[in-house]
Amino acid sequence: MAQLAEELERRMEELRAEIRRAVIAGDRARASELRRRLRATDREWEEALARLAAPQAPGGPGPGAGPGPGADAGEPAGRRGGALLTVRERVHQALTLLGAPAAPRLIVAVYEAFYAGELPAARLTSLRRDEERSFRSAPHARPYYLCAALSADLLAPARGLLAVSTWPMERRVIGPLSPRVDYLTAAIGVAERLLATGQPPAAARRLLWRFAVNIPGAASGPAGLDPGQVAAAARAELAVHADADAAHRAAAARRALDQLDSAGQLFGGGGLRLLRGGAAR
């Protein structure tokens, strides 16, 4: 049995070398064929090892396996999460703190900074699609959905942003100034949460610092980071953009409410159709 495993290991080594040569030669077809064979060999090898180690149960997930098909977004959080929250609940918590549409990266950072739990970024990639599927099969069955932010001009889903369905439409559309406005809003959210926390975790302070450096007058040095000052500075800049942004968003929100059905309002209209339609009008 051990011999077989060794044999398989040698075979995998050879396959990898062949793949490297195929890649150098620009032979994509051959490379992918070889990769397929490598994966198969890899599985055989895993099995051989498993048989070798038969007495004990295999520890940990097998190599190469990502979150399995069973890794549903509704699955409870891992051991270290403490509070048994689902992924969607954790995302909702983070978004609520931020108070504005945000990218998965920021959502993860906020959650891990404030809630001392884990939020694997990979889980967020399919979240919006799952939510949309759930909404379409049973509309409004849940108290909230994690939905898209919509681009103000075309009312199409804005790339890579998540929002909460219970937010007013104005908050969920993204005009040209909105990315900055939302950034400042998020900074305020983080700063205020820090102010409200007696002993803020170091990760949360680091998160605020990352905001602060990008806001004029928000910070003088990592040692002298003052959440109150950050919030004030963010508000000061926000005042510059707020009116124009609000006007833009309000107009777009009205259009969205007029033109889109309830699913469209949450997950975006067929943008191009709209674009063409608009051009035809």
Partner: peptide, 19 residues
């Protein structure tokens, strides 16, 4: 073809505790 897989294996082993 080689390094990425091995580093990933180390990461997983770290996270998973075994191996």
């Amino acid at each position: 073809e080689v390094l990425a897989r091995l580093i990933a294996a180390c990461d997983r082993a770290e996270a998973g505790g075994g191996e």
